[in-house]
Design a protein around this nucleic acid. Sequence first.
DNA 1: AGTCCCCGCGCG
DNA 2: AAAGCGCGCGGGGACT
Length: 574
Amino acid sequence: MTTAVRGILVARDGDAILVADGDEGPVTRLTTAEWHRTVRDAAPGTRWVWDDSRRWYPDLLAASIEVARCRDLRLCHVILQASTRVADPRPLRAATDWNVAEAGELVPMPDATATLFDVDVDEGSAFARGVPSDLASVRAEYARQQRAVAESAEPDRLRLLLAAESVGALLAIELHAAGVPWSRDVHERILAERLGTRPAHGGLPSRVEALAAEVRAALDDPSASLDSQPKLLRALHRVGVMATSTSKWELEKVDHPVIAPLLAYKKLTRLLSANGWGWLEEWAPDGRFRPVYVPGGVITGRWASSGGGALQLPRELRPAVHADPGWVLIVADVAQLEPRVLAAMARDESLAAAARGTDLYEGIVAGGVVTSRPEAKIAVLGAMYGATTGDSGRLVPALRRAYPRAMGLVDDAARIGEDGGIVTTWLGRSTPPPTPEWHEVQSAAGAPEATEADRTRARRSARDRGRFTRNFVVQGTAAEWAAAWLADLRAQLAALPAVADADAAPASGSIFGVRAHLAFFLHDEIIVHVPRAHAEAAADAVRSAADRATTLLFGTFPIDFPLDLRITDDAAKS
DNA sequence: AGTCCCCGCGCG
DNA sequence: AAAGCGCGCGGGGACT
């Protein structure tokens, strides 16, 4: 599998598409049809170097043309211009038209087809600001990036990061095109069970209506407003419930007849407004849920999403994720991804030993560090999030004694952040520097006339940033492991054979209807939609991709990343 | 009417 | 239980 990778520059010139072989090769001018043919017939190792995958790939996919690899200059610029591993970031930072959002034309996002002519600049989900697409700009930016990598402290890691980020850009568009196979029937059954009968128009579902009546009776106020936080809080105070907020973890502590129906009401109205019948019509009208994924959308390098709440699909709706007839789902997630990543980054043999096998928390208990699994869990979370008080903060010192290398890594990251410094993930993504406002708060506290309030504010702000940088290195490196996992898996799935037309997935309507494909991704879990005949092959691919990701990032360091993997018809959590 | 912020809660 | 990271979204209310 060692095909030489060749970079081909792609640019736009009016209606024409310009393609140039490498840095100095001849420029070819193509029509759209010729461009499609060129991509379809390209050598296996070709890497398309283009401004922004969102500008090129939806059109290719619509023509059933897949791209194996690219360099997404926009996303890679964001990484490189900030990375502490780049020796001289000045040329990148000076290229301000590549510095994301500020300048440039509007680029239609993958879900924009319906609203393409309804040009509403403020509709952020449909359009985004674009980077340059002319050949001179693309060529210059690629040269800057290649030089930045070559001269960096860790060229191999950065190359891996840029490749993974760019595959992510392609995959995000593919996931949108493929969609999550969604059973409208199952979704509607869940809604009916939980919420009751659907209202004809304007009203509330029957069970919600009944609960609202119960709550109003308990509040002794037939017209009480239940959806306005301030009004609800006042109504609660009137019947003697002296809560300071209407959040469920505070209300749960109160013993009053209004609490049970109120919590039930809140739970149901949440389901109704977030994932009710309206959501179903808007987001899965045709048996596919097509969220817009935003690679690099989170500061740590995780993906964000826009529209449909893709990253917040409630567990109770997971059964609606349902394979098409003749197909199955492979649902896989990594148990305790982040602490495992931390053990590997820190080369902490003790934590890695506790992580051997399927349950890192039990491993910590077995090592005698804490006495129970729940304690191990909150201790580990507290260590990675920077807890200082409560049970979590109390347990962290035990972890510090048992795993000095791992804890040293996150403690160092926190200290650097508190001091205004920058920290970097394993592969090379760095935090932004503190904002000018942050520095102002710090210097104000050091001035001779500073008040105690100034100093308190500065300490708080420093510690806030310390918790951010502490978590950044772990969350960001975990995102890198997941990106490497996805990239390898995607390549393996693309190599699986297509099925006969008769076995095509009915609701897909694209190349993903005839071949195993990724259907969902959420930080550390994936769902693959697979023709039944290829289930075992695809499951093996999921496992081997995880192994390869581990080796790619961490070499021979002995760390396990065990998968919880199921082959199933629906994605309900077992 | 539009915009912005807060609250609350869903996910990892 | 809400102290301790990162998100998106819907609803209400205050403001323009």
